[in-house]
C-alpha cells in the first residue's frame, strides 16, 4: 500500500486549514471592528496580523481548570470529539481535479469515497456530541442549558440540511462529491455555468441557513448566547481545551463554506476555462485557486452576516427550523423530482 501520498495530503490539508483559520480569526476581528466603527487588533505584527498567534500562545500558557464536580474523563473527551469531527470532514472535499506532480497524477482530495455526501452528514451528526457532552460534564447549569439547546438545534436543522442536499443529488445523480462538481461544469443554454445555485436556488437558501445553524454562528448562536448563558456549553472550559472549542468552531465554518462551494457554487470548476487553450498543469492550478477564492468569499459572507443580524430567540429558532425551513426544503424536493421525471 502506498502510504506516503495520503500522509502528505493529510499534513498539507491540516496545515492549510489551520493557516486559514488563523487568517480567518484575524480578518473576522478586523471586519467586525470595521463594521462597528472600531480599529480592532493592530499592535502585534504589521497591521496586527500576528494577533491570532499571540492568542494561541496565551491559551497554551493558561491553567486548565476543571470544575470540582465535573466528570473529568468526559470533560476532557468533549473538545477532542469536537475538533476531531470538524477536521475529518474535510477529507472528502475535492479541492481540485487531477494534477501531475513529480511524474504522478495526483487526485486533489484525500479520499474519493462513493458516499461522500453521506460521510459528511454522518460526521455532522457526530459533532453534536462534543457540545452536548461538554455541557453535561461541566456540571453547571449554564453549560447544561447550552448543551441541550445545541442538541435540539442541531437535530432540527440537520433535517432541512439533508433534504436540501437531496435536491442536488437528484440533479447530479451521484453521491460522490467529485461527480457533483463535474456535473456542475456544464452550461445552461450555452453560457450560464450549470452551478446548483442556479438550478436549485431554493435548496441553496435552505442549505445556507441550516449551515449557519449547524456551525452555531450568529444569528443562530443560541448554544453560547452570552447575555443569557454566560458562555453556554464552554462556560467551564479554560486554556487549551477552550481553545480547541474555538478552533473547531472556526474549522467548522471553513468546512461548511467549502461544502457550500462544492455543492452549489461549482466547486473547483472554472467556467469557460476549456476555451482558453491552457495547459493541463495551469488548469489544475487555477482550479485550486478558484476553490480557495470561492471558499474565502463564502466565509466572508458568514462573517459579515454575523456582525449584521441580531440573535434569534429560542422559540423563533425552532419555528424557523420546523415550520419554515423543513416544509420549504420538502416542497423543493417534490418539485425537483416532478420536473426531473417530466424531462427525463
Amino acid at each position: 500500500m502506498n502510504l506516503i501520498e495520503p500522509l502528505v495530503k493529510v499534513v498539507l490539508i491540516l496545515a492549510v486549514m489551520l493557516t486559514l483559520v488563523i487568517l480567518l480569526v484575524y480578518s473576522e476581528r478586523r471586519i467586525s471592528a470595521f463594521i462597528q466603527n472600531r480599529i480592532g487588533p493592530n499592535r502585534v505584527g504589521p497591521k496586527g496580523i500576528l494577533q491570532a498567534v499571540a492568542d494561541v500562545v496565551k491559551l497554551l500558557m493558561k491553567e486548565d481548570i476543571v470544575p470540582k464536580n465535573a466528570n473529568k474523563p468526559i470533560h476532557d473527551l468533549a473538545p477532542m470529539i469536537s475538533i476531531g469531527v470538524a477536521m475529518s470532514t474535510f477529507a472528502v472535499i475535492p479541492i481540485g481535479g487531477t494534477m501531475v506532480l513529480l511524474g504522478q497524477s495526483v487526485r486533489l482530495m484525500l479520499a474519493d469515497v462513493n458516499i461522500g455526501i453521506l460521510y459528511i452528514l454522518a460526521l455532522t451528526s457526530m459533532g453534536v456530541y462534543g457540545i452536548t457532552l461538554a455541557g453535561w460534564s461541566s456540571n453547571s447549569k449554564y453549560s447544561l442549558l447550552g448543551g441541550l439547546r445545541s442538541s435540539a438545534q442541531l437535530i432540527s436543522y440537520e433535517l432541512s440540511m439533508g433534504l436540501s442536499i437531496v435536491g442536488v443529488l437528484l440533479i447530479a445523480g451521484t453521491l460522490q462529491l467529485d461527480g457533483i462538481v463535474q456535473a456542475q461544469s456544464a452550461y445552461i443554454g450555452g453560457w450560464l455555468p450549470a452551478w446548483n445555485v442556479f438550478l436549485q436556488p431554493v435548496a441553496f437558501v435552505t442549505f445556507v441557513v441550516s449551515a449557519f445553524a449547524e456551525t452555531n454562528r450568529l444569528p443562530f448562536d443560541l448554544p453560547e448566547a452570552e447575555p443569557e448563558l454566560v458562555g453556554g456549553y464552554h462556560t467551564e472550559y479554560s486554556g487549551l481545551k477552550f481553545g480547541l472549542f474555538m478552533l473547531s468552531e472556526y474549522v467548522n465554518l471553513v468546512v461548511a463554506s467549502a461544502i457550500i462551494v462544492t455543492l452549489f457554487l461549482g466547486g473547483y470548476s472554472v467556467p469557460f476555462a476549456e476555451y482558453m487553450n491552457l495547459s493541463a498543469q495551469t488548469v489544475s492550478l487555477i482550479q485550486v485557486l478558484t476553490f480557495c477564492v470561492k471558499t474565502a468569499g463564502v466565509i466572508l459572507f458568514f462573517v459579515v452576516i454575523r456582525w449584521t443580524l441580531p440573535r434569534f430567540r429560542y422559540d423563533q429558532l425552532m419555528d424557523l427550523g420546523w415550520k419554515v425551513m423543513l416544509p420549504i426544503a420538502l416542497a423543493n424536493l417534490v418539485v425537483t423530482g416532478f420536473i426531473l421525471a417530466a424531462f427525463s
Binding site: 469515497v113 462513493n114 458516499i115 453521506l118 460521510y119 452528514l121 454522518a122 451528526s125 457526530m126 453534536v128 456530541y129 452536548t132 457532552l133 455541557g135 453535561w136 447544561l144 448543551g147 441541550l148 442538541s151 435540539a152 442541531l154 437535530i155 440537520e158
Partner: peptide
C-alpha cells in the same frame, strides 16, 4: 456495505443516541 455502515452511524449514533442523551440529561 458502505451504505449500511454510514446509515448505521447517521441514524443510530447520530440521531437516536442524541435523543437518548437528551432525555437522560433532561
Amino acid at each position: 456495505a458502505q451504505f449500511i455502515a454510514v446509515i448505521q452511524i447517521i441514524v443510530y449514533a447520530g440521531a437516536i443516541m442524541v435523543l437518548f442523551l437528551f432525555v437522560i440529561m433532561l
